[in-house]
Computed example of a mutant assay.
Amino acid sequence: MKIAFSPCPNDTFVFHAWVHGLIPAAPKLDVTYADIDITNHLAASGTGLDVMKISYAALPWVLKEYALLPCGGALGRGCGPLLLTKEAGADPAALSGKRVAVPSERSTAYLLFRLWAAQHVPGGVGEIVVMPFHEIMPAVRDGRLDAGLVIHEARFTYTAYGLSQLVDLGSWWETDTGLPIPLGAIIARRSLDLKAIEAWTRASVEYAWAHPEASRSYVLSHAQEMAPEVAEAHINLYVNEFTADLGESGYGAIAALLGRAMREGLVPEFDLAALR
């Protein structure tokens, strides 16, 4: 079975057991490690693999061919994207007409940013520049861009680049809606045995929690230039009860985000019932 997910610690932690043949009856995995912007576009282009990690924001483009699995992904509280600038205490209005780097235009981070900017940046921002997330903070630090939207472990390391947080978009979303933040989704081709894939994914999550040290070398081998304590903090933040099962609150958060994005014209129209 062909699968694609990022080399980030939460994904390698979740899928370690399945990748290493530790889940009974689960098929052998052929793994592609790719940034989420790449997997978003692979899934939407029709050249995607059997199972993929994509952004929840990319779901409207792929739900005809792929189903959302209720486990394995990233959704939670206190784990949202940050908007960073070089200037401490900057006024959001100062972003009007400015250049902002984002990790993907089909990411939850981008949707949250656009929804927030519509309320707080008069006239809107200027140019949106898409780049791999690990390049964003150096670009803002060096003055090549006015602000950067960052995800993952950047929330633990941005001060080392001399950057300041303009807004925590996750906190904004939680305050605005009272809901958790939908980040990364696990999808599988509808033509496959979805119940079996769900069971294997959940078993891999449960194995990871039961044997946290088993995946350590695998996680760190893919977490390039990341200190072990940062990798652990990353896992603790993004792998939580929603990773085991979305539940009603998880599905509610996804429907709220994508429903609002549809009303703002940020994603294609689709039937929210297709999420289940």
Rank of each mutant, 00 (worst) to 15 (best):
S6T: 15
V14F: 09
V19F: 12
H20T: 14
H20C: 09
A25L: 11
Y33G: 03
Y33S: 03
Y33W: 13
I38F: 11
L42K: 09
V51D: 09
K53M: 14
L59H: 05
W61L: 14
V62K: 01
E65H: 13
Y66L: 04
L75I: 06
R77P: 04
R77D: 08
P81N: 00
L82W: 12
L83P: 04
G89Y: 09
D91K: 04
D91G: 08
P92N: 10
P92R: 00
G97H: 09
A101T: 06
A101Q: 06
L112R: 00
R114I: 06
A118D: 12
G123H: 01
I128M: 02
V129C: 11
V130K: 02
F133Y: 14
M137Q: 10
A139Q: 08
R144A: 15
G148W: 02
T157W: 02
T157F: 05
T159L: 13
D168C: 08
D168P: 08
W172Q: 04
W172E: 03
P180N: 08
I181A: 10
R189Y: 03
K195V: 08
V205K: 00
W209Q: 14
A210V: 01
A210L: 01
P212W: 01
R216N: 09
E225S: 15
H234P: 03
I235P: 06
Y251Q: 07
A255S: 13
L258N: 00
G259W: 03
R260F: 09
M262V: 04
E264L: 09
G265Y: 06
L266T: 10
